[in-house]
């Protein structure tokens, strides 16, 4: 972990700078979602060996990335994009806090 963290952080930073410099929105979306996942790694490790959070978080982030990539892939027409933005928010709003509550460790402190 001591070596993995610096490498992961530097890769994410390099990815973000590349996406910005070359104006690559798909790459920016992938890096952005990865950054959100990376920010939660400490909590996931603190719950080991319980893998429920890792699984739930992966599902949430994959859904988020899929929505972003779908939006990036479609030509702007009508209100579809606006409706999809609102639908993703409406879908995640109840799911994410419930995932948090259900995977919250009770029997010990966070490591």
């Amino acid at each position: 972990m001591r070596r993995l963290v610096p490498i992961s952080v530097l890769l994410l930073v390099a990815g973000w700078l590349t996406a910005m410099a070359l104006d690559l929105p798909r790459m920016a979306a992938a890096v952005a979602v990865s950054c959100i996942g990376a920010a939660c790694v400490g909590a996931v490790r603190g719950r080991a060996p319980d893998r429920r959070l890792a699984a739930a978080l992966s599902a949430i982030l994959i859904a988020l990335l899929a929505a972003l990539l779908f939006l990036l892939g479609k030509e702007p027409s009508g209100a579809t994009g606006l409706y999809l933005q609102l639908a993703v928010m409406a879908l995640l709003a109840p799911i994410v806090p419930i995932v948090y509550a259900l995977t919250f460790p009770t029997d010990r402190d966070v490591r």
């Binding site: 988020l64 994410v96 948090y100």
Partner: peptide, 29 residues
């Protein structure tokens, strides 16, 4: 800017849990 303004609030469903996962649990500790 229309719907593009919603990117500011698009993360709203995530941020409560994200704060707790990323910093809250460590802060309380």
């Amino acid at each position: 800017v229309g719907a593009a303004s919603l990117w500011i609030i698009f993360s709203a469903p995530l941020t409560g849990a994200l704060q707790c996962w990323a910093v809250g649990e460590r802060v309380v500790s």
